[in-house]
Write a protein that binds this DNA or RNA. Structure first.
Lengths: 118, 118
DNA sequence: GGTACGCTTCGATGAATGTCAAAGTATTTG
DNA sequence: CAAATACTTTGACATTCATCGAAGCGTACC
C-alpha cells in the first residue's frame, strides 16, 4: 500500500511560506532533483545529491511538503516525492520555473540577447 | 546631491539570498509598493503601508538592497528606492513577476477545474 | 549656531532555523 | 520472532533573524 503524507490544500498554500521553503540551498537542490521528472521520484535518489545527515534530509522534505511544494507518498519503507506543479502553477504562475530553471551562470552569457529584457 | 547606497553587482546577486529577502511579509509589502512605479519612489511613502518601527523599516530596506533587489539613493535627508528590474530579469527571468504580481485570492477561482486535484 | 527632522546604527531580546546524534517507528527479510 | 533497513521524531545546540528603544548622524530650516 501507499499512503500520502499530509499536505496543505492548494488554496492554503502561502506565498511567504513557499518562499521561505525555497530559500535554502539544500531544499533547492532537492527540488531541482525532482523538477525534471514529471512523476514520483525516489527520495533517497534525489537526496543523494546533498551532503547532510538523514535526519536533516527528512527535515527538509517535511518543510517542502508542509509548505505545499511537494507531495510525499510512503511506499513500504521507501518514500517517493513529486513537485506539486499544477497547484503551484495555479497559485503562483511562473514561480517554480523562475526559481528552478537552470539559469546561465552569472558570468556566462549566451548572446547579448537584446530582446530578453522585454 | 544624491548618492547611491552600496549594492551588489548584477552578477553577484544570489538566488538563495534573493529568496530569503523575499520570504518576509514586511519586505513583500515594501516591494509591492514599489513594483507598480517604474522609477524612484519615496521610501517613507512606500513604508506607510507597513506597521513597524522606523529602525525595522530601515533594516528591511537594507536587506532588500544588500540582496540586490533594490537600489536606494539618498537625497538630502530623504531616501528613494526602486526595484532593480533589469538586473533581476537578467539573472532570474520571471521571478519578480511571479512573486509580486497580484494573484487572485486563494478562494477566487476562474473555472472549477475538476481535474486539478490529480 | 541651534533645533527639528529623517533615517541609520547599536545593543538587546525573544523566536525561528539548520544541523546532528540518539532513540523511535514501521517495513522487509532471514 | 529477530535482525536489518529506511526513515522520522526528539532533544540539544549554535546561528540567524525580526523587532524595538536609545543613541548617533547628516540635512534642512529658523
Amino acid at each position: 500500500m501507499s499512503r500520502q503524507l499530509p499536505q496543505p490544500s492548494r488554496d492554503s498554500i502561502d506565498l511567504v511560506t513557499v518562499l521561505a521553503a525555497l530559500a535554502d540551498p539544500v531544499r533547492l537542490t532537492l527540488l531541482r532533483g525532482m523538477y525534471a521528472s514529471s512523476g514520483l521520484v525516489d527520495c533517497a535518489t534525489v537526496a543523494s545529491g546533498v551532503d547532510v545527515s538523514p535526519p536533516t534530509v527528512s527535515h527538509h522534505y517535511r518543510v517542502l511538503r508542509e509548505a505545499g511544494l511537494t507531495t510525499t507518498v510512503a511506499e513500504g519503507r521507501r518514500r517517493s516525492v513529486t513537485i506539486r506543479h499544477d497547484d503551484l502553477e495555479a497559485r503562483f504562475p511562473g514561480l517554480l520555473a523562475a526559481v528552478l530553471t537552470p539559469t546561465a551562470a552569472p558570468g556566462a552569457l549566451a548572446a547579448p540577447s537584446r530582446a530578453a529584457v522585454l
